[in-house]
Simulated assay, not measured.
Amino acid sequence: CVPVMMPYVTAFFMPRQAGDRPDVVPAGAVNFAFLGQFAETPSRDTIFTIEYSVRTAMEAAYQLLGIDRGVPEVFNSTYDVRTLLAAASLLRDGKEIEVPGPAVVRDLLMKQIKNTEIGELLKESGLLT
C-alpha cells in the first residue's frame, strides 16, 4: 500500500453558501461554461453524483447554443412513498407481507385497507395481493 493524499475529495463535504461556485454559464459568457461538480446550477440536485455533472453539461449546451429546451427535472424520491414501498418489496424478494397472529386479525386488517389508497399502494408495490 502506498499512502496518498487526496486534498480535493473533502471539498464535497465542506460547508458552503450560495455564490461559492461559479454559475454554469456566467453572465456575459458566449463561448465557455463551467461543468461538473463545482458549478452552480439552480436545480435541486446534489453534487457528488454523475447526474449533477450531466445536468450542468446539458444546461451549458442548451444555453450556449440557444436551444429552447429544459434540463430534465431531478427525480424527487426522498419523500415518495412509492419509492420506499418498491424498495421494501425488493428487500423482501417480492414476497408479500404476512400478518402474524390469527387469520381473523389478518382478515380484519385487509378489510380495513382493501379499497383505500394505502391498500392500492401496497398492491402496486407487490406487498399485498
Rank of each mutant, 00 (worst) to 15 (best):
C1K: 13
V4Q: 14
V4C: 14
V4L: 15
M5V: 12
M5E: 14
M5S: 15
M6Y: 07
M6F: 10
M6I: 03
Y8E: 10
T10Y: 00
A11S: 08
F12V: 00
F12R: 00
F13A: 04
M14K: 09
M14L: 14
R16T: 11
Q17N: 08
Q17C: 07
G19F: 06
G19Q: 05
D20R: 03
R21T: 06
R21I: 03
V24Q: 01
V25L: 12
V25T: 06
P26G: 06
A27T: 09
A27W: 07
A27F: 07
G28S: 11
V30T: 15
F32I: 06
F34C: 02
L35D: 02
L35M: 07
L35W: 02
Q37M: 08
A39K: 00
A39I: 05
E40W: 02
E40I: 04
T41P: 08
P42D: 03
S43M: 11
S43F: 13
R44S: 12
D45L: 09
T49P: 05
I50R: 04
E51V: 09
S53G: 13
S53T: 03
V54E: 02
R55G: 01
A57T: 05
M58K: 03
M58L: 15
E59K: 02
E59I: 04
A60H: 02
A60W: 03
A60V: 11
A61P: 01
A61I: 13
Q63S: 09
Q63V: 04
G66M: 03
I67F: 14
D68I: 05
R69F: 07
R69E: 10
V71Q: 00
V71D: 01
E73C: 08
E73G: 10
F75N: 12
F75C: 12
F75W: 09
F75I: 13
N76H: 15
N76V: 01
N76M: 09
S77Q: 15
S77M: 10
T78I: 15
Y79D: 15
Y79Q: 14
D80G: 01
T83R: 12
T83C: 10
L84C: 04
L84V: 06
A86K: 07
A87P: 00
A87V: 08
S89R: 09
D93S: 13
G94Y: 06
G94A: 05
G94M: 08
E96N: 11
E96H: 11
I97C: 06
I97A: 01
P100Q: 08
G101L: 06
A103M: 05
A103S: 09
A103Q: 14
V104I: 09
R106I: 04
D107T: 03
L108Q: 14
L108R: 15
L108A: 13
M110F: 15
M110C: 10
K111S: 12
K111G: 08
Q112D: 14
I113V: 11
K114Y: 09
N115H: 14
T116W: 13
T116E: 11
T116S: 14
E117T: 15
E117K: 07
E117W: 08
E120Q: 12
L121E: 05
L122S: 03
K123P: 03
E124M: 13
E124F: 12
E124L: 15
S125A: 15
L128N: 01
L128F: 04
T129D: 08
